[in-house]
Design a protein around this nucleic acid. Structure first.
Lengths: 196, 196
DNA sequence: GTCTATAAGTAGATAGAC
DNA sequence: GTCTATCTACTTATAGAC
């Protein structure tokens, strides 16, 4: 990974982010040193500070970028239809989006503890905004009688936990395609929330 | 937390385990130093090595103890009845057991990455033995037609992810009792796996 | 923009006194 | 069994040369 001296600002920046993401996902934020990230990129540790103020900003920017992307992608999806249709759209979107970014999902979920308090507040707010979208769908369905749930808030958290869990075992080279996985989870979600 | 000099082997050992568990749960294994653990216990760092060979063993023993306790508690539960009855027993057991040990659950789930390879194999084997119990129940129910699932293995992982997720938000001082939470999750699990 | 060198501090783990 | 002291290595971050 040695690199001869020179200027590479346009390509080094993204490479730093990518190396940090991969290493944080594999070993955890606290277990990864700036030297390891630099080695992965092919620069010396000091050079990283041209792209990030410090290690904490590296983590926060990754998580912030992931959440922004999640909310932007979701905003680009169709939001109309019956509660059942909206729930199906949400479920399929969630699985697809998360399966495409296993590292970012893993880091955003596992490294919340390692965010500085102010940074944590920001990420937590974005996460709640996303969850509220599902909760709204479930509440609408309960109101119209198509869903039957004792507690919409808990159902929201339960569904999201179930769906996000897919990233812990799914491998694209495995026996199931992403489309099949999407269908299997949608079947379970639909049944879990539906009225008898 | 200062401590006068003396011998306290019988009480210090459990205190080391407990302090490590709490600190690992709150800050993460890699972010916690042996000196922090020692300060929490009220001894100097060197004294910890009377109770653990090294930091890695501290983590492994905690996780191993948690998994052993999980499997032993489960083995003490009734295992007979219809697939639906067995699923209800498993669901309620899982929620109750996990709600009673939020720190151990959190550490056992989040710190898998920080186990040395051989230690990881052990914990992974225990985890799989536990999951297989749920998978057996689901398979039996599918065979007898009471459950309807496209894939028993994925349903197993989905149900466990959903149930374990309860530990991320549940607080005993919150608006719902553990018994209520148990009931809400059981309603969702039952519906999610049942045949139409 | 990247390098080398370094500051200042902390890590895990051990040795020997008591 | 716990203490103090210490070894060796590594940590984040910065300064100044190129």
């Amino acid at each position: 990974m040695a690199r001869t001296q020179g200027s590479h600002s346009d390509i080094t920046g993204p490479r730093v982010q990518r190396a940090a993401l991969e290493l944080f996902a594999r070993h955890g934020y606290a277990a990864v040193s700036m030297r390891q990230i630099a080695a992965e990129v092919g620069v010396q540790a000091g050079a990283l500070y041209n792209y990030t103020a410090d290690k904490q900003s590296l983590l926060f920017d990754l998580m912030r970028g992931h959440m922004d992307e999640l909310l932007a992608a979701r905003a680009g999806q169709p939001q109309s239809g019956s509660p059942l249709q909206r729930l199906e759209a949400f479920t399929r979107f969630h699985i697809r989006f998360h399966l495409e970014r296993p590292d970012a999902v893993f880091v955003s979920y596992m490294e919340l503890r390692n965010l500085a308090p102010g940074n944590f507040e920001v990420i937590e707010g974005l996460r709640r905004a996303y969850e509220d979208q599902l909760e709204d769908i479930l509440r609408d369905g309960v109101r119209t009688g198509v869903f039957e749930l004792a507690d919409s808030k808990i159902a929201t958290l339960a569904v999201i936990a179930m769906l996000t869990g897919v990233t812990t075992w799914y491998r694209s080279a495995g026996r199931l395609s992403a489309a099949q996985v999407e269908q299997i989870y949608w079947d379970m979600v639909r049944k879990a929330v539906s009225a008898g």
